[in-house]
Every structure is written in C-alpha cells, then in structure tokens.
Design a protein around this nucleic acid. Structure first.
Lengths: 245, 245
DNA sequence: GTTCTCACTTGTCCTATACTTGTCTATGCG
DNA sequence: CGCATAGACAAGTATAGGACAAGTGAGAAC
C-alpha cells in the first residue's frame, strides 16, 4: 500500500494545529525544522502546509514563517472592512445614500485628530434591505478629498476611493441616546439607545486620514468581539476599556 | 517553539506598564537601559515600544524619553482580563458588591450556551472610587460552582476562582435603555442609554463555562478597539458586526 | 536674569548576519 | 505523469551594532 507522504504530514499537522499544540496566532516550526522532524524534503513539507493553507488552517508570510490562522469567519470579518462588506457577506442588500457633501471647518474633536484646515464632511445613511441601518458622518482632509465626487462617495466606500494605503484604525464603541437628527434619519424615537462608534483610520505611515462616526440603532445592531486565549496570542486582541468621565 | 523576541519584550513591558510599575505619565527607562536590561539590541527594543505605542499604551518625545500615555484609563490590558484589573492598573479603587447569590434554573438564553441544569447566578455591582460602575450578572454551571462561597465571589473575580484553565471568550457589545433594575443599581434614570456586554467565557478545551452580562452606564464608559493593519497582522483582531434583527 | 555648554534622550539612517518563505531547476522512482 | 528528493537563488524578516542628527533639560558661565 503506497501512501502519499505529504498527506500523512498534513494530517499530522492538522492534528497538532487543531489540537491546540499550536494556538491561534502562534508560529509553527520553520520548514527547515519540519524537514528534519518528519524526515521529508522541503517540497513535501510545503505541499502539506499548502494543503493546510487551502483549508484555511494556517497561513504564512515570506521571511517570517508559518502561523496558525484564526477562525476563517473571524478572519474574513476581522479585517479592516466596511460594514457594507460584512452585510454583503451575510446576504443583506446594502445601500448608501448621501445626505450631505460639503467642505467645512471640522468640529474641534475632528480637528484634534486630523489637524487644522478644512475637511470634506459627508453625511450618509446606510440602508440594509431598505431599512435605515446606520447614520454615518465621515470627515476627510481637504487635500485627500479633492478628487472625490458626491456620486463616487455614494457608490463606493471611502476606503476604496482614497489614494493612500490604509494602516489600521482605532474604533471607540459607546452608547448614547438618539439625537433628533439620529432619530429622523434612522426612524427611531428621540432618546432611544443607539450605539455610537467613532473610528479613526490611519494611513500606512500612521497619519490619521479619516474620522468617521457611525450611529446604529441599538435594537438592530451589536458588536461581537472575540478575545483570544490570553497568554498564547502574538498580537494582543486590542480591546481595552476606557472611562471618559 | 519559535518566538519573536520583540513580541516577548512588548508583552513584558505591557505587563509592567499595565501593572502599575510605571505610573501614568511617568518615564520609562531609556532605550539604552532597556537594551541592557533585556539583552536585546536597540532595534528590537524600539520595535517593542513601537508596538506598545500603536496600542496607545506609551508615547515618546525626541530628546525626552518614553512615557506612559496620558490618558490613565486607556492603558488597559487588552487581554482577557477583568474590568477590575483594568481599573486597578489605572489607580482607581475597584470594589465588588454581591447583591444576590443563588442556584437557579437559568434563563433560556443562558441555558442555550451552558446546557441544561441548574446554575449559580450571581448579581453584583462594581464600584469605582465609590461610584457604581457596572451591574454584572454571572451564570456558572452548578458543578463548577459547588465550592464557591459568597464571600469568595465578593473578594475575587470569577476567573481566579474556577478550577479550569481559560480558553478565551466571545463578547457581544450592544446598547440598550436602562431597565428599572439597572437604574436602581447604577443610580441613573430609567431609560437612559447603557452599554450591554454579554460575554461567554470558554475553557481551554472550548466548552462554555461562564456567561456574564455587564451593564455600564453610557456616560462613563466606552470600548476602544484597535483594528490592526490588515496585511501585517498575524492574528486578526476578530471584531465582527452582526445584525440581530 | 540670560546664554552657553554638555550629557542624555529619541529619530533616523546605515551595514551586516542569520534565518525564513517563495520560486525555480534537476533528478530519481514507479 | 505524479510523487518525492535535493539543491540553488531571490526576497523578506529579525536582530545586532553602529553612526549621526535633533530635541531636552540641567547646570555652569556670564
């Protein structure tokens, strides 16, 4: 009975990865180490690892190594994506409607982050299956927003329109009572609870390029955060608690 | 197991900063001191410090030094920790008060997660500097809670009392209006906005062992989440958006 | 008081080494 | 032809060690 070597190795690695020997986010031994450990050639080891990658179990970065991938669902949604993407992924028809498109002096809180100077302020409402879903205000520095048109902003998310590569974001989640504007746009009573998310998006070089405020009606929305096993994860999960009092 | 040195150093510094060894606003040892202390090169030390800066824990000024970031309550843990730890770390006196301690039939939503059978239900209020800060209800399966006393629960967080190793948690963050019970405990008006966090904690083997509901008054609290740069992150942060409608 | 100097700090660049994955070729075996 | 071994090279990463510029702060000199 002839067995396929890389399938054996893949099965063994699958067991080790799934069995928690390598927890999410941790590095696997290098291909060279695995070569000696399994007594197989590097090509064979790589075929086994490629198999595991195609299953979404592990991933690699050149020059760095192989590591255990997070839960595929988490992975897909954990990236810096738009809410529309996430809705699309769950089969909900998402729609954007621009209420307001103007270059203005930013509010103080926005100026603190983006620096002085005029900004493009876009007010939008997002609809999911025709229902108002989120009231969004985006502020973007004037020099980055020069080329943007109202139609473009209505059609595509900001992330796709800006001519810079994104570096990450910090999001603050809080609760608040719906303001009259929120209530009018979201079709909810004034004072009813809403989730308020303030997101600061940074470019790859670390400069803040986008500030956005998302208001969600509480009854329709919630955030889910996975806190990884504390001691095992390379990247800290990044949730922290803040008192703004 | 391969490890990345700057990640280890960052983890150690994170612990020292969060643990109060360096008080808010205080200077950290200079990079030169840290290189000798950790036996690493300056490049490595700086990568660790840059990591901590990206998390908002520390900051630096040329010619001056590295210091713990200004906002005292921002220097939280990130890890799967208790809110009390995070308050302690920032010098706020945290206090737990048990309101209710009973073995009961769980609500349906809790039974869905923990399975059938009686559970220990503990209602608590957390105080920060004497002010009610969070209203917490914890449900724990009866067989795990047999040895727990009311005094123990008042004294220590659940995480330290359970005889199992923790595997991670999933936390849901939503907004709601304060119920009469919330209002009475937190000293806020009925109907005012609150943050409602439902956390399911799992053991290392993946079985759910704890369900807890945390109610925070909106005006005092918010969550901060860092979404890392997509392509550089090993373990995605794992925030996802859900629609519960 | 003001100004200067000097020690010390971080910010930014460089070179160099070792190690990793990504990709390719050549070869043997059934 | 698929599977395996062996090797070579490119590209990326981690770390060490160094050099220099620029900012800070305290004390000396005036």
């Amino acid at each position: 009975m002839r067995t396929i070597r890389y399938n054996e190795i893949a099965a063994d690695l699958r067991r080790r990865v799934g069995g928690g020997e390598f927890a999410a986010g941790r590095l696997l031994p290098s291909e060279a180490d695995l070569t000696t450990a399994y007594g197989a050639s590097r090509v064979t080891i790589r075929r086994a690892l490629d198999l595991l990658r195609s299953e979404g179990l592990v991933d690699s970065r050149q020059g760095f190594g192989w590591f255990v991938a997070a839960d595929p669902l988490r992975q897909a949604l954990g990236r810096l994506g738009t809410i529309e993407d996430q809705l699309d992924a769950s089969g909900v028809r998402a729609e954007r409607r621009v209420l307001d498109f103007a270059f203005v002096e930013p509010p103080a809180t926005v100026a603190d982050v983006l620096g002085p100077g005029k900004v493009l302020q876009v007010r939008r409402v997002n609809l999911a299956d025709g229902q108002p879903f989120a009231r969004i205000t985006v502020w973007c520095p004037e020099d980055l927003a020069e080329e943007l048109s109202r139609a473009e902003v209505e059609r595509s998310p900001f992330y796709e329109l800006l001519p810079v590569s994104l570096g990450g974001a910090t999001q603050t989640i809080g609760a608040a009572a719906a303001s009259p504007e929120d209530a009018a746009v979201l079709l909810i009573p004034v004072g009813s609870p809403v989730l308020r998310c303030l997101r600061v998006t940074k470019a790859a070089d670390g400069t803040a390029i986008l500030v956005s405020e998302h208001i969600f009606p509480a009854h329709r929305t919630e955030f889910v955060i996975d806190l990884p096993r504390p001691e095992r994860s390379i990247a800290p999960s990044g949730i922290r608690f803040v008192d703004e009092a």
